[in-house]
Design a protein around this nucleic acid. Structure first.
Lengths: 136, 136
DNA sequence: GTAGATGCAAAGTATTTGCGACAAG
DNA sequence: CTTGTCGCAAATACTTTGCATCTAC
């Protein structure tokens, strides 16, 4: 059974090797935002021989192909997630590191307006909220 | 004449060495968002002997003291700017790398609301817009 | 005088790359 | 077949750190 990422590779003409299929599957199955180390760990459980260099090369390739999104949240390591039509931003729990995905169309609209105001066309954006859980 | 950052150091009880005074002045005078390399270059023109390690240590200290803000824009290297009362976000020209600062209170408010909605108190945020200049 | 700062070079991280062997289309 | 990919280890880029020396307060 081929993963959703695998399908996207075919659409985009990205050559599918065994290694890429495994990385594609692991990322398609992931519900979180793994960094390269974590991804390498998961991938290694399926195939011991895959090297970390290949993981780096593959996430970069997938990112350039618009299949994965790369995030540089605070903390150094880049994190990746599958890119779907439904765009979303992130709310990060500064205590636990938990990441919540959210969408707010009002904010999206305002961002476009701000860009317009300065004579720009918005091509990308990054919005991260950092918060602490409220006592209930 | 002491720089605005120098004043803040005194307020916050940060010890002022010659090196720190120079770094403070360069950052106070900067109208852009230099990365450590650029900062080191500017600082070196004033005092050849300052080491890059000191620059790294100082920006980190200033950041922890709430004097400088650190940004991880796309492109790898961390960039710094003086932190003033007036908070602002950034609109980045993806072609030229030019950075425009902006404030939009409506967006700020909505961010708080989003965090609330998920049971969080907003403690920090990051908003970066990436755009291309429109033809006029 | 003393705790903390500096310079230097060495050590860490995270990521990229050269190269010969190998595999997908 | 041929072009691109892989694994490995070495290289790179950015940042941090141990240690002996020095300096602000």
């Amino acid at each position: 059974m081929s993963s959703t990422i695998e399908k996207k590779c075919k659409e985009k003409g990205v050559k599918l090797t065994d290694q890429r299929k495994i990385i594609a599957k692991v990322m398609s199955d992931a519900n979180d935002h793994p960094n390269v180390d974590e991804l390498y760990n998961r991938v290694s459980k399926i195939d011991q021989k895959i090297s970390i260099a290949t993981v780096y090369r593959t996430v970069k390739l997938f990112e350039e192909s618009g299949i994965l999104a790369k995030h540089d949240f605070k903390g150094g390591k880049a994190r990746y997630e599958e890119l779907n039509e439904g765009h979303h931003d992130h709310l990060i729990d500064v205590k636990s590191g938990e990441i919540i995905e959210f969408v707010d169309n009002e904010i999206e609209e305002l961002q476009k307006k701000v860009a317009e105001k300065y004579g720009y066309k918005l091509v990308d954006h990054k919005l991260e909220l950092y918060g602490v859980k409220k006592k209930t």
